[in-house]
Amino acid sequence: MSAKKVFQEAPEEYVLPGNSACQGCGSTLALRWVLKALGKKTVIVNPASCGCVYVGLYPRTAISVPYIQVAFAAGPAAASGIVGGLEARGEKDVTVICWAGDGGTADIGVSSLSGSAERNTNYIYFCYDNEAYMNTGTQRSGSTPAGAWTTTTPMGKKEGKKDMALIMAAHRIPYVATSCSSYPLDLYDKTKKAKIIKGTRYIHILTPCPPGWRFDTELTVKIGRLAVQSGMWLLYEIENGVFHLSAPSRKILENPEKRVSVRDYIKAQGRFRVVREDEIKRLQETIDEKLEKVAELDGKPLFF
């Protein structure tokens, strides 16, 4: 689908301009497209994150569907309550989603998220992943990748990134997908697909963050594209346990010449300034190996 076609299909904006997101925010771009796919009958639960701030100040909001802010660890449980309340009210055509950051997902909220998935709560959980606690000024999270500078990892994070999408897939929920704010149409399609599935659905979106990742605001979309084109971030779906690579990631597997080096991705961002050349080389090898394995997995069930 082209941008033009989607404009005809979903011209309505549910994220209104004049909000308090940073210039070039990847998260608001992603939320724009999620809401275009879901439409008016959507309820959002937003645990503590940038999302609590960028909607604007009382008594105005940038989001034109119900948007309920809750405490950090409470997102999925509050969503469970809303799903239950709507069920008790007999409202059947409302989509409940949780819109949480990576800290709220991978760290403080993981227990609540896991509980909701184990109960197969009928909602869609979106993690917008800017790979650190950006709302509090860039501290490391479980989702911060190795090598990244944050204010609490001044020499770069030693440990790797927690793989939330696979953790969620291990809950055997009906739909898990990854996406990136630089691929709005991919995100739009996946969200539309998720909307009609029942049970817990999980979509993990990489959303580049100019102040936290240290790059110029105009590069938000480009940096996310480099993440995917280098294989640092994979776009895929796990539908009823079967793994499918999405087109942008399949493209770099099928056409190695379309791949960009990990180095290009790393060097485009100030947060990786402490990463040494030998570390980049090792990272490149890891990614190469990962892509080989992923190519074998494509189209196959992920779990026994």
Binding site: L16, P17, G18, N19, S20, V55, G56, L57, Y58, P59, R60, T61, A62, I63, S64
Partner: peptide, 14 residues
Amino acid sequence: VPTSTPSKGSIGKT
């Protein structure tokens, strides 16, 4: 209960 209503410019003319 403090609730906010949707409008452009929730933080002003950005």
